[in-house]
Amino acid sequence: MELLVDLLQLSIYGIVLGSILTLGAIGVSMIFGILRFAHFAHGDLMTVGAYVGFSFLALTGLPVWWALPAGMVGAAATALLVDRIVYQRIRRTQPVILLISSFGMALILRSVVQLIWGPQVYSYSSDIQRPWRIGDITIIPNHVWILLAAVLIVAALHLFLTRTRMGKAMRAMSDNMDLALVTGIPAERVIMLTWLLGGALAAGAGVLLGMDSRLTPTMGWNILLPVFAAAILGGIGRPYGAIAGGMIIGLAMEISTLFIEPSYKPAVAFVIMVAVLIVRPQGIFKGTL
C-alpha cells in the first residue's frame, strides 16, 4: 500500500518533469527535422530563457507567470540571432559541422549567463506553497500550473502546425526538403521560424524547470541528456512523438528513485535511450533516422 502511494506520488512528479522534457524535446525534434542535426545548445537555450524571464520579473515586478512569455521572447530572439550570426554561415557544409558548432554555442551561452547573472542560484518566488492533500498524496500547486502551461503551449503549437500556412510548410519541409524546394516553399523563412519556435519552446521548458526548482547556469545542460532521450524515444524529427517520449522518460526518471539513488536520474534516461537505440533506433513513432 505504501509502495502504491509512493508510486502515485512519484508519477505526479514524473508527469511534471515529463511535461518539461516534452517542451524541450519537441524543439530538438523540430530542429532535427528541418536542419538535420542534433542541437546541442538546446539545454543552454532553456537556461537563457529561464534567466531572461527572471530578469523580466525583477525589472517589472509583475507576477511570476510573466516569466514565461518574457523568457520565450528572449530565447526565441537568442536562437534566431545565433542562427543568423553563426549557424546560417556553416549550414551549407555537412550537418555535423553544425553539431560541433552547437556544442561550442552551448558553452558560450552558459558562460554568457554566468557573466551576466553570476554563479549564484536564483528562484522565481520565495513564497512557500502549501501543498494540497488528497489522501496520502500531496500535490504542490505549482506542479498543476506547470502541467497546465505545458499543455497550453503544446496545444498552441499543434494549432499552429495544422492550421496555418507556415505551420504546414514547416511540416512539409521536415517531411521532404527537396520537394519543398521545388514546390516553392521559402526554406530560409521556414528555418528562421523553426529557430523562433524552438527557442520559445526551450524557454518554456526552462522557465517551468525554474519554477519547479531553482535557476542555475547549468540547469539546462544537466537536462539536455533526458531531453535528447525523449526526442529519440519519440522518433527524432517527430514533434508529436516527443510528447510520448518526454512523458515516458519523465516518469521513468522519477519512479526510478524508488530503487536507486536520485542522483542517477539522468543515467536512467541514458539507459532507456541506449535500449531504444539497440532495439528500435527509429523510436516509437518511426522518426527520420
Binding site: 532535427f32 542535426f37 542534433a38 546541442f40 550537418p95 555535423v96 553539431l99 539536455l224 541528456l225 535528447f228 532521450a229 529519440i232 527524432i236 541514458f270 535511450m273 541506449v274 537505440l277 533506433p281
Partner: peptide, 10 residues
Amino acid sequence: TDYLAIATIG
C-alpha cells in the same frame, strides 16, 4: 553520427 554524438555525451 548524430546518435553517436548523443550516446558519447551520455
